[in-house]
């Protein structure tokens, strides 16, 4: 029997490389991460509260409000659009299916962690939402655009973001990020030298 090997979205799209893609432009780093299972939870009409209770019992966090994320490192619920949340990490508990349409999205999205001091300056070149730290805090999320791509952007720390785009677009995402990263990096160098 053929031996099947899991590949990251970037590996699949580019047909090359091995292991998760990592791109560094000092002082910024973009790296592909494996978030575990991704499952969309779309509550049936009037079932949002019941779903939130079931989610809390099964995975330890309630349903997130719009533009927010709930949960801990091991299991997170990310607001993912109108009447939809994305369960990140564990496989979904069977009890959730009573209140929501539960759909596996694991292979549909690529997840990239972008970090570095003042990294919001990089995203400011690509995303039409104010992502500065005093406005867009840790645990805040937005469904928005990165360049021309539909994306989910979440702040995971003082100098780090999680960016999700459709799996097929991960190469474009890295290219766009690279362009923005070298731009900001060069400006800082020029300011430092001057």
């Amino acid at each position: 029997m053929a031996e099947l090997k899991a590949k990251t979205p970037y590996e699949t799209v580019t047909g090359g490389a091995s292991g998760p893609e990592r791109m560094e432009v000092t002082p910024f780093v973009a790296v592909e991460v494996d978030p575990g299972a991704l499952t969309s939870l779309a509550p049936y009409k009037g079932q949002a509260k019941a779903l939130s209770t079931a989610l809390e019992a099964a995975h330890g966090m309630g349903l997130p409000k719009p533009n927010r994320m709930t949960g801990k490192q091991s299991a997170q619920a990310l607001w993912f659009g109108r009447d939809m949340a994305l369960l990140i990490g564990p496989a979904p508990d069977a009890s959730l299916a009573a209140h929501a349409a539960v759909t596996d999205q694991s292979d549909a999205w690529s997840v990239v962690e972008l970090s570095g001091p003042g990294v919001d300056e990089v995203l400011a070149r690509l995303v039409p939402v104010d992502l500065r730290g005093h406005v867009f805090k840790r645990g805040h999320t937005a469904r928005t655009l990165v360049g021309h791509m539909s994306a989910s952007v979440t702040r995971t720390g003082a100098d780090s973001f999680r960016i999700m785009v459709f799996r097929s677009m991960v190469k474009t995402l890295f290219r766009e990020l690279h362009h923005a990263m070298i731009g900001v990096s060069a400006r800082r160098e020029a300011a430092g030298a001057g």
């Binding site: 719009p66 533009n67 109108r82 039409p128 939402v129 937005a142 469904r143 928005t144 655009l145």
Partner: peptide
């Protein structure tokens, strides 16, 4: 009404 004020590019 859900996300708040956003740029027209998103619409």
């Amino acid at each position: 009404p859900i996300c708040g004020e956003r740029d027209i590019r998103e619409f």
